[in-house]
Design a binder for these strands. Structure first.
Lengths: 135, 135
DNA sequence: CCGTATCCTGTAAGATACTG
DNA sequence: CAGTATCTTACAGGATACGG
């Protein structure tokens, strides 16, 4: 592997992170990074939700997109869906233990965001770039 | 706000995360989540890199995309670019302190990935979904 | 209430070729 | 070496309407 040479820098951080290139961080970031999933998971973290409740809570999401996200999260074992055969129909979504474990890395991202996001926004004002503005 | 009712669940986690809905976690996740940025930052974490070095290290990236990502990271103050007016030309990219601070949330994601990603992959095998497979 | 079904759009990214 | 210039593709997401 010639991707990284930890000796190039004295810091211990580099060594720590060299391995990450072989680890599945990227797919997990895809998982976390999809536009709505974080809001869905955060809402579910506050308690079980029905479809329409989520739809209201996650402002702006369309039913199609909400369904798609929920199905994906369910497939990955992060969210569980319980269907009640009643009239009118009822479906309840909640976080699985695996889904709840995601709150830990979320927290780290959140902490970083609170501390540094303002700095980035300041920089962006009056600048332009090819890269997405992320918001 | 009626987006979340922390009292719905006894757990302390919910209260902790209720605030996150108002915080800039999402844009930061966009920042981290762009397909290549994590690999770029991780490589730069190991030491200063020239354009071509990054191109080799980040396997599969095209120069256009690499440039676009680097410009965005530079705009946001995560990466600095130093140009040497020499022949042949030389440009060196490195992480700013702000960029290095990103390694902390990365680490949290990475830890989660190592612990739980296998579980998710197992679940995905033999299943299909509307959601992107993320890898 | 809980979704599906279509159609459409925006944009990151890929392929390829070229320049200071 | 360090990029830029086009063109094209893939796909999450948006708008809107309908079905069980």
């Amino acid at each position: 592997m010639d991707t990284i040479d930890p000796d190039q820098r004295g810091s211990g951080t580099a060594v720590l992170l060299a391995d990450t290139l072989d680890c599945p961080s990227r797919p997990v970031l895809d998982l976390l990074g999809s536009k709505w999933s974080v809001l869905i998971i955060l809402n579910l973290a506050a308690g079980t939700c029905r479809f329409t409740e989520l739809r209201k809570a996650v402002t702006g999401i369309t039913p199609k997109v909400l369904t798609a996200n929920l199905r994906g999260l369910e497939r990955d074992g992060l969210v569980s869906r319980e269907i009640f055969a009643e009239v009118p129909p009822r479906t309840e979504y909640s976080l699985t233990p695996l889904g709840e474990s995601l709150l830990v890395p979320y927290k780290a991202v959140q902490d970083w965001a609170w501390e540094h996001w303002g700095t980035i926004l300041e920089r962006r004002e009056g600048q332009s770039a090819t890269r997405p503005a992320a918001g």
